[in-house]
Design a protein around this nucleic acid. Structure first.
Lengths: 213, 213
DNA sequence: GCAAAAGTGCACATTAGTGTGCAAGTTCTG
DNA sequence: CAGAACTTGCACACTAATGTGCACTTTTGC
């Protein structure tokens, strides 16, 4: 109520609220229990001012989650490739480029309290991934030794781990590592992964497709 | 000093200290910031009594890490298989059976403060894994598209994720899922993984090696 | 330019956890 | 059994964080 003035809402207020959400996401990604003082300061505001936008820490975190949900939704709807393995590659790459968001979601989900809400925010993405997996299993391009449900989760965990725990600056990586890992988990041999990356990469000219030793 | 009486050390004190360490590991695995009251209570002691064994929280956590280090050391020394991929399988399976320990290590390592100590406690295990990877790459049984150092870390992260984040009770799993994931990450196609698990499993008779469609 | 909205700066109450001191009990160990 | 080792149960000081109240300044919008 106090946080839904609906009509009058000053420009600087909108900007500050947005900045708070962005900074909260970044700080939480770095440390799940970042203090409100830290977040407010990062947004160039006082801790006291933060309470003008969010009634308490809980409200802020929920807003961060919902903000992330929109983005995840966009990603889920945004991918469009010819076949399952390409979709998987695209999905992984896109998430890699949203590393901070993925990181924050993972950090928030550590708290029991936000488990269900975080899960809900990831729902569209999960549904998309599940569809890809089922499709891939049907056409025999994705492994058949693990049930679709389990494999979907396995791929999700793998991607999350790679994105969250790898230094984005790592020279060897450049988004290729997560893709290699995910495709491997999907069931491809490393030679197949290599061949696929070599052919699909319209850019990435410097990366030679030499393959084995 | 006050915690190295060396000679006189009553039996119940030894037992309680050990119980404290065990409970601390379990509680920290469940929640990285478990309070000392929670830990002491789990061990059937008072928070005040805990301070008789460990000067402060830091000392307790360090003791937990060092206790884990011994166990990891034993695992690193304990594996002995004919070839790299079998060693990888055995290593993964053993760690799976030490889930609580792996979980606690991962939880403690979340704190900047204990990063280096945790890393040191895992050193023997990492060295063993690195040796397996290098060996496997030399003989061509393990993927060659990723550097040994990166692949070692990749396998470690994959195994940790699976062990920490999967419900041990899951019917489909029974230690096979982590092994499948690790072998896939090592570069094998899912059919090769399937074949390997079917032949290696001296037990596990019910699992049919049907393979692809 | 003026009123309302938004932000500042402080003081304050509250909570949960850590670490210590001390007097009193309980439990080993020789 | 006697004495030492261990544990208990409190009381206490201290810290870091949350959330609120209020007077005051700055910014925005009409």
């Amino acid at each position: 109520m106090a946080h839904t003035p609906a009509h009058t809402l000053r420009r600087d207020a909108v900007r500050n609220r947005d900045e708070l959400l962005a900074c909260a996401q970044r700080e939480i990604a770095r440390d799940p229990r970042a203090s409100l003082a830290t977040i407010a300061q990062a947004a160039g505001l006082t801790r006291r001012a933060l309470y003008g936008h969010f009634s308490d820490r809980d409200a802020l975190v929920r807003a961060v989650i919902e903000r992330g949900a929109e983005r995840f939704n966009a990603i889920a709807n945004g991918i469009a490739a010819a076949e399952p393995l390409d979709e998987l590659t695209e999905l992984t790459t896109r998430l890699w480029h949203e590393a901070s968001l993925v990181h924050a979601s993972a950090a928030i989900a550590l708290e029991e309290r936000y488990l269900s809400l975080t899960a809900a925010s990831l729902a569209p993405l999960r549904a998309r991934l599940a569809a890809i997996v089922e499709d891939g299993q049907r056409t025999g391009q994705i492994r058949g030794d693990i049930s679709a449900a389990t494999l979907t989760r396995l791929i999700e965990e793998t991607a999350r781990t790679l994105i969250v725990r790898w230094d984005q600056q790592d020279a060897e990586v450049t988004a290729q590592l997560p893709v290699r890992a995910v495709l491997s988990i999907a069931g491809l041999s490393w030679q197949d992964v290599e061949a696929r990356l070599a052919s699909t990469s319209t850019s990435a000219a410097t990366k030679g497709a030499s393959g084995a030793r």
